[in-house]
Amino acid sequence: MRTDYHNTPHARAESAYGSIHSYIFGFLFSILCTGLAFGLVQWDLVTHHEILPHGMLILVILVLAIAQLMAQLIFFLHLGKGSQSGWNATVLAFAVLIVVIVVGGSLWIMSNLTHTSVEEMYIGGVISPSTQAD
């Protein structure tokens, strides 16, 4: 961008709203990510889980979701543009921190808890591994 023009209110608003190109690019990229993730899972089902190792497939699908998140943040929400962008990014970073703590923490604690309580029940003779049908 030209620096002399960049600081006028009009130019600032223009960059904050994005352009038609940014929407088209963001849209096509999102469609591509969604289609690819869907195709991989469908293909995995058809070939009975033989296209990729399980962990690899989960990783690829996670990467596709995060790529789409980044694309939408940049091309739809225009993060990093506009006059309040520093504050917007700060609030977003804080929200991401809370999300990671809440989701990661819950999974971590609950998996430990299930593990311990099931083990205690085995030891106490309340249930045996064979009664755990599922």
Partner: peptide, 18 residues
């Protein structure tokens, strides 16, 4: 809301079928 849906699509629907 679209971004939230990406994660519902991935974690709820796609992960259920893996």
């Amino acid at each position: 809301l679209d971004i939230v849906w990406i994660f519902i699509f991935t974690f709820v629907y796609l992960f259920a079928l893996l």
